[in-house]
Simulated scan of single mutants.
Amino acid sequence: MTDVTESVATDAGTARITWYRATRPRLVLALSHGAGGGIEAPDLQVLARALPAHAVSVALVEQPWRVAGKKVAPAPRTLDVGWRGVWPVLEGAGLPVVAGGRSAGARVACRTAGELGAAAVLALSFPLHPPGRPEKSRAGELLGAGVPTLVVQGGNDPFGKPEEFPKGAYDLVEVPYGDHGLAVPKRAGLTREEALETVAHAVAKWAASLG
Rank of each mutant, 00 (worst) to 15 (best):
Arg111Pro: 10
His54Cys: 10
His129Ala: 14
Pro130Gln: 14
Ala207Gln: 06
Thr149Pro: 00
Glu6Pro: 11
Gly155Met: 12
Glu141Phe: 06
Cys110Pro: 07
Val86Tyr: 05
Gln63Met: 15
Thr191Ser: 13
Trp19Leu: 03
Val184Leu: 07
Ala204His: 08
Pro25Gln: 12
Ala183Glu: 14
Asp3Phe: 07
Gly168Ala: 04
Trp87Leu: 06
Met1Ala: 14
Glu40Gly: 13
Val199Gln: 09
Ala207Thr: 12
Thr191Asn: 05
Ser103Leu: 09
Leu116Tyr: 08
Gln63Arg: 15
Pro64Ser: 13
Ala139Pro: 02
Pro166His: 11
Gly144Ile: 06
Met1Gly: 14
Pro74Glu: 00
Ala120Cys: 04
Arg66Thr: 01
Val72Thr: 15
Ala109Met: 00
Ile39Cys: 13
Glu62Trp: 03
Ala59Glu: 10
Arg102Tyr: 00
Leu196Cys: 03
Glu141Gly: 12
Ala208Ile: 09
Ser57Met: 08
Arg77Asn: 13
Pro52Asn: 12
Trp87Glu: 10
Glu135Ala: 13
Arg49Val: 06
Ala93Gln: 06
Pro64Leu: 13
Lys71Glu: 12
Thr10Ala: 02
Trp19Tyr: 07
Arg102Thr: 01
His33Lys: 09
Lys167Phe: 01
Ala119Gln: 13
Glu164Ala: 15
Thr18Val: 09
Gly160Val: 09
Asp43Trp: 03
Pro88Ala: 07
Val151Arg: 00
Arg192Val: 12
Ala104Pro: 03
Thr191Asp: 08
Asp3Gln: 10
Lys70Val: 08
Thr2Arg: 10
Thr198Trp: 01
Ala93Trp: 02
Asp179Gln: 11
Leu190Trp: 03
Ala120Ile: 02
Ala202Asp: 06
Leu122Glu: 10
Pro88Val: 07
Val72Met: 12
Gly168His: 01
Ala139Trp: 04
Gly117Arg: 01
Ala183Asn: 15
Arg102Gly: 00
Val184Glu: 09
Ser103Phe: 04
Lys205Thr: 15
Leu31His: 14
Glu40Tyr: 05
Pro74Trp: 00
Glu6Trp: 10
Pro88Tyr: 02
Thr191Trp: 03
Glu40Asp: 15
Arg49Cys: 06
Ala123Gly: 09
Ala202Cys: 01
Pro130Glu: 15
Val46Ala: 11
Thr5His: 11
Cys110Ser: 06
Thr2Ile: 08
Lys161Ser: 14
Val28Asn: 07
Ala22Trp: 10
Gly154Arg: 01
Thr198Pro: 01
Val175Thr: 01
Pro127Arg: 02
Ala195Gln: 13
Ser137Arg: 09
Gly13Cys: 08
Lys71Pro: 08
Arg77Glu: 15
Trp65Asn: 12
Ser7Gln: 10
Lys186Arg: 13
Leu47Arg: 01
Gly114Cys: 03
Leu44Lys: 11
Gly146Leu: 07
Ser137Asn: 05
Thr2Cys: 02
Gly168Met: 01
Glu197Asn: 05
Ala93Leu: 06
Leu124Gln: 00
Val98Asp: 04
Val108Gly: 13
Leu172Val: 13
Pro25Tyr: 05
Gln45Leu: 12
Ala200Cys: 07
Thr10Lys: 04
Leu124Ser: 00
Pro88Arg: 04
Arg138Trp: 13
Gly34Leu: 04
Pro176Ala: 14
Leu29Glu: 07
Arg84Gln: 09
Trp19Gln: 05
Asp179His: 04
Asp43Ile: 11
Val97Gln: 09
Arg21Ser: 15
Pro52Tyr: 12
Ala195Cys: 12
Pro76Thr: 00
